[in-house]
Amino acid sequence: MREIVITLADVVNEIHDILTFLFSDMTDKELHFWVMGIIGMVTFLVVHFFFKLIERLKWSTTILSFIYTFTGMVVLVFAIELQQAITNRGNMEFADAVIGLWGFIVLFFIYAVLGLIVYVIKKKIFKRKDK
């Protein structure tokens, strides 16, 4: 994992150097303003488009809640792994982050299956009462 973080940092530094060269008339703060602003807006537009599609689905709130929670979990597991690298307490491994996310996905899947079972049972009970 340490190698991945170092490689990503190197890539970001290379991109930063290229942008600094191309836009040499900008300060570092101005460059960050525009680059992060553009990245943020492109991300927002893509996410907004997909969330509008999800909004039309039956369990849209559950889907959106899962996406939001999963995103938070990704940030959390990588923050924990980075903290381990900084403090030298534990091993910083990509596999640890992945298995932590799998834990959430498996438990969410169990929750979804149980919720679906309850939903089907309720539908059958109310269907019988209507007859």
Rank of each mutant, 00 (worst) to 15 (best):
G100T: 04
L22I: 12
H32Y: 09
I54R: 02
E55N: 12
F70L: 10
L101K: 02
S24I: 05
G103D: 05
S65H: 09
S24W: 11
T69G: 00
I80A: 03
E81C: 11
Q83I: 15
H16L: 07
F66K: 07
T71N: 05
I63D: 04
T43Y: 10
T87K: 07
Q83C: 15
E81M: 15
F51P: 04
N88M: 09
F33D: 02
F44P: 02
S65F: 11
L101M: 11
D28W: 11
M26C: 04
F94I: 05
F94L: 12
M41V: 15
V46N: 07
I39A: 12
V77S: 02
E81G: 12
G72I: 00
M36V: 14
H16F: 15
G72T: 01
S60N: 13
I67V: 14
A97N: 02
W102R: 04
N91C: 03
V42T: 03
M73F: 14
Y68D: 12
L53R: 08
F94Y: 09
I15M: 07
L76M: 13
K52I: 00
M41N: 04
G103W: 00
L22W: 09
G90H: 01
T61R: 15
V35H: 03
I63V: 08
F70Y: 14
T62R: 10
L57N: 07
T20Q: 10
D17F: 06
K29N: 13
F49W: 03
Q83S: 15
E93Y: 08
A95G: 10
V42I: 14
D17R: 13
I38G: 00
I54F: 08
F70I: 08
V98I: 13
T27E: 01
D17V: 06
A79L: 15
I99E: 15
T71V: 06
T20R: 14
Y68H: 13
L76H: 05
E30G: 05
F70P: 00
F49V: 02
E81A: 13
D28A: 11
V74S: 03
G72S: 03
G40S: 08
L101S: 01
S24A: 07
T61Y: 12
F44E: 08
F23D: 00
F50E: 09
L64D: 08
S24Y: 14
A79D: 05
T27R: 00
F44T: 14
G37C: 02
V75L: 13
M26Q: 07
L57C: 10
G72H: 03
D96Q: 08
L45M: 10
K58R: 14
L82E: 11
A97C: 10
S24R: 06
F70V: 06
M41R: 09
F33Q: 02
G100C: 07
N88V: 06
R89Y: 09
T69C: 01
D28S: 11
V11M: 06
L64I: 06
